[in-house]
Nucleic acid binder design. Structure first.
Lengths: 139, 139
DNA sequence: GGGCTAATTGAAAACAGTTTTCAGTGTGAT
DNA sequence: ATCACACTGAAAACTGTTTTCAATTAGCCC
């Protein structure tokens, strides 16, 4: 789980100011257990700071992504969702029902990557894995 | 490689009519070695049938996706790209330079999926893997 | 605590990509 | 050749995102 204060720290460490609307977005993201769209984040952020504008949500999400605190989550239907991210390389499991997002770290793809590299001639630099299913609650 | 005639077959088998604009889109997709955006497909399709409208490109891509002949390719920067798809489950390797897309089939993820299932409590139904790197030409 | 400066904000406008609408057209069956 | 109906394309409508710009505010300095 991502704490609000650690987010705030990452923020100020980069020289960004900690304003009220940004705090509101930080709070929402820190509490989010699922991938949220900018619009959803906006709606929730307004509970903490009613004047928060959607524009600022976008801007803050950009900054958070830059800090590595948030990751863009892609789904079949589009790529309009952001989820809290722990440090380092990680992947997501996404619930098809409630859109809850959980991260997992192990990616034992070394074997597979080697094989693909050999067969396709590509030099593989990055990979991207996302799992879809049902979370314990929705089963 | 996807032949134009097999695409056409998949099309008529479903009761769709084979019109000129659709033929044009089919031709473009069959020849595509890389992921193409709807706009790019439109531009190329006009070479085969100058009157082709962008709207029809979208509609035809939907139909092709429904037939499984085309797959939506997702990238860091968005999900606006379509690539020809062979039958069955497959994944993509995408060149970061020229955006060439190659499919590969083996996904030896069974082990990994089991582990993640055990650790997260999710029932995993689908997975989605995309690799990024440099193609032989761009290396 | 009050004042200063540059970063930040939000409303509106601009923008890009996609979808809907609708009158006219072309396809494939007969 | 004729016909019904699926299909088409231009324009308009929409949705989500980005830019613009004047007003505001956080954090620093005294």
């Amino acid at each position: 789980m991502l704490s609000e204060s650690s987010l705030a720290q990452a923020f100020t460490a980069r020289g960004y100011k900690l304003t009220r609307p940004r705090r509101a977005v930080l709070k929402v993201v820190a509490q989010a257990g699922a991938g949220l769209s900018p619009a959803q984040i906006h709606a929730r952020a307004k509970k903490f700071h009613p004047h928060t504008g959607l524009v600022t949500v976008y801007r803050t999400l950009d900054l958070l992504a830059e800090c590595g605190a948030v990751r863009r989550v892609h789904g079949e239907d589009g790529c309009h969702s952001y989820a809290p991210a722990s440090a380092g390389h990680a992947h997501h499991v996404i619930c098809g029902q409630c859109h809850a997002v959980v991260e997992f770290e192990e990616c034992d793809l070394a074997e597979l990557l080697k094989t693909v590299q050999r067969r396709t001639g590509y030099k593989i630099q990055e990979h991207w894995l996302e799992l879809f299913g049902l979370c314990p609650n929705c089963r």
